[in-house]
Each structure stands twice: as C-alpha cells, then as structure tokens.
C-alpha cells in the first residue's frame, strides 16, 4: 500500500491557520517527489466548511473527526483522534505547524508511536542518507536552527516511521488554491473516556492581535534614533503605504515611542520578513537575533560605523528626520 503524506490541519471552527495551508503547499511538492497521496487530518466541530478549501490545496483524502467534543483543542482527545487517523491514513510523513498546539500535540503522538519528531523546522527536503554502510532512499530532511540559531542541523528519521516534524509559520511558500480540484472525505468517529478528560478548560481569553510581526512580509522598525513619538507616527504612515508592519527596538519601547507588542528581538518577537527596514537602530546583539534572518535588511543610520551595517544588505547614512519624509514622498511620487 502506498504511504501517504499527512498534514494536521489546525483550525478554530472559523478558519484554517495559515501554517496548515503552507504545509499543504509543501505537501504538494513532496507528494510529487515521492509519488504518493496527500492527506489532511482535520479535527473540530465545523469541519465541513473547510473541505472545498482543502481540496483546492491538493488534498486527496480528508480524514475528519467532526464532533462537538472536539470544538476546542485538548491534548488527550486530540491525540486519540490523531492516532486513529494515522492508522487509517498510513503516512510516511506527518507535518504539524510549530504553534503552541502543534508543539503540544506532536510530541505526545511521537512518544506514543515511538517515532522521531523534529521541532520547529525551517526547511524540508527529500534526499538519501548513508550511515554505517547502509543507504536509505528518499528520506525527509528536516532542517532547523539549533543552539540559539548558531547552527543549522539536518535531521533524518531513517527507520522508526512515520517521519514527523513541526514547521514554523511563514517559512513555506503558499500555493494558489485551485477550486476545481476534488477529493474524498473519510469520517472518523472517536470515543472518549474519562481518562481523556482529566483537564478542563475553565476560561479562554482571546487577545486580539493588533500587530502581526510574524506574518509580515515587510517590517519597518525604528529605534532610539527615531527621537520621538511624532516620528513613529510618520513611520506608521510609511508602513501603511508600503503594506508593512511597524517594529521597534527595545530602546524605542523604553522611551515610550511605541508599545511593547511591536518590539523585535530576544525579548520581543523573532521575525523573518522579506524586507526589514531599521531606522535609527544601532544593531545590538539582542536586537539582531530577532531580525538577522530577514531577506533584505535596509539600515538607515546617521553613524556610518553603526554595528547594524555589519548585517545589513543596504546602507544609507543620514538623518531620519529628512530621510523618512523623503521616502514617503518618493514612494507616493512613483504613482503607488
């Protein structure tokens, strides 16, 4: 029997998390390389809403646990549901988003199946592996940073399958859905016992996200060199124009120019946008660890020797007070 690729579809009853769609996109590529089928595991109480979307992302078979008991994520019930789905789907690879949910659920399943699991991958590839004069063909290369980002490791699971990984949000490219595609649904029923209900959720507080640094393609960040809240207002104007989110250094937050949820760095958010603008940020290591993997780093600083220029791709030496308004004007004049 052909072994599938199975993707855990994280959803909140209203929508599917982007990371799951990104994984399906990657799944399409892997499916082609490995000549196999793409399966989706969806657990919740409003699953039918999502079937057409899952097909549009190339899913051949949807395994669905659709039951009021599974409205909210709970470790033990979801583990039980996944184990049942895995039995049906017979996957060689299972992928989960590296979200709090994925990172709670996946290790529990790995332990239960006695298979390997690699956390927080930033890249996945297919390749061979040689070890002690033996060769394994077409294994999943699970690529991830470790040691605080000082090393990049490639991990494989040669023998104890399925090969499982959690994957960071925003690193896999999302494909265009094709709504003409169709597949099939297999409904799975799961009986829960008292043993699965030892944890009760008493209350849920949803914090509306106002800043989405992780999901941003472009971030314009300001530091102490911005000098004032007023300049940050200009920054928001600039961000809106070029469809960016606004980030900040800790110094800018400490000065009260902007709120803490905008902070990038070791004690803020770690970001990896396509483009990162650093206005008046010196480039302290605690800031750098939060942004140095950005695609293109554009640094603007009045000090030509500022350390930020050591990691920047684009260097502009000058005063923010003139450069920021000039950027806004220039972009507007380009007819955008």
């Amino acid at each position: 029997m052909k072994k599938s690729i199975l993707i855990f579809i994280e959803n909140n009853g209203k929508s599917i998390q982007d990371v799951s769609l990104e994984l399906l996109s990657k799944g399409n590529e892997l499916k082609e390389k490995l000549d196999t089928d793409l399966h989706a595991a969806i657990i919740g109480d409003n699953n039918t809403e999502f079937y057409s979307k899952l097909y549009a992302f190339g899913v051949d078979i949807i395994y669905s646990v659709n039951d009021g008991e599974f409205k909210e994520f709970k470790t033990l019930p979801y583990t039980k549901a996944m184990l049942k789905i895995i039995k049906e789907s017979n996957p060689q690879i299972i992928l989960y988003g590296a979200t709090n949910i994925g990172r709670d659920l996946a290790p529990r399943i790995a332990s239960s199946l006695k298979c390997g699991l690699t956390a927080d991958c930033t890249d996945l590839r297919i390749g061979n592996f040689e070890y002690m004069k033996k060769t394994w063909k077409n294994l999943l290369y699970q690529i991830r940073p470790a040691w605080g980002g000082n090393i990049i490791a490639t991990i494989v699971n040669p023998e104890m399958h399925p090969q499982m990984a959690t994957v960071r949000e925003g690193v896999m490219h999302m494909i265009e859905p094709d709504y003409s595609l169709k597949g099939k649904v297999v409904e799975i029923g799961v009986e829960l016992s008292d043993k699965d209900k030892k944890i009760t959720i008493l209350k849920r507080i949803i914090k509306e996200k106002t800043v989405d640094l992780k999901g941003a393609n472009i971030i314009v960040s300001g530091g102490a060199g911005m000098g004032s809240k007023g300049n940050f207002n200009k920054m928001f104007e600039f961000a809106k124009l070029i469809k960016a989110e606004v980030g900040a250094s800790r110094a800018a937050v400490d000065f009260g120019f902007i709120s803490k949820d905008h902070q990038v760095g070791q004690t803020g958010t770690v970001v990896k946008p396509r483009v990162y603008f650093a206005f008046g940020i010196s480039g302290a290591v605690q800031h750098r660890v939060g942004m140095e993997n950005s695609g293109t780093i554009i640094a603007i600083n009045s000090d030509p020797d500022a350390p930020i220029f050591d990691i920047a791709h684009v260097k502009i030496v000058g005063d923010i007070n003139t450069i920021l308004p000039l950027m806004i004007k220039t972009y507007k004049e380009m007819g955008k």
Binding site: K114, C115, G116, L117, T118, F129, Y131, Y141, Q142, P145, G149, N150, I151, I152, A153, T154, I155, V156, N157, P158, E159, M160, E292, F309, D310, I311, A312, H313, V314, K315, I316, V317
Partner: peptide, 21 residues
Amino acid sequence: SPTKVKNIESVVITKKDIKNY
C-alpha cells in the same frame, strides 16, 4: 533514537555584500 543528525552547519555571521545608497 529514531532521529539522527545528518549534518550540522555553523551559521557564521559574515559581512554580506552591502549596497550603498
């Protein structure tokens, strides 16, 4: 251990080609 480390690369912070404007 089901997982094996295939290889490890150090991430060396190198001065990238920088473009001035």
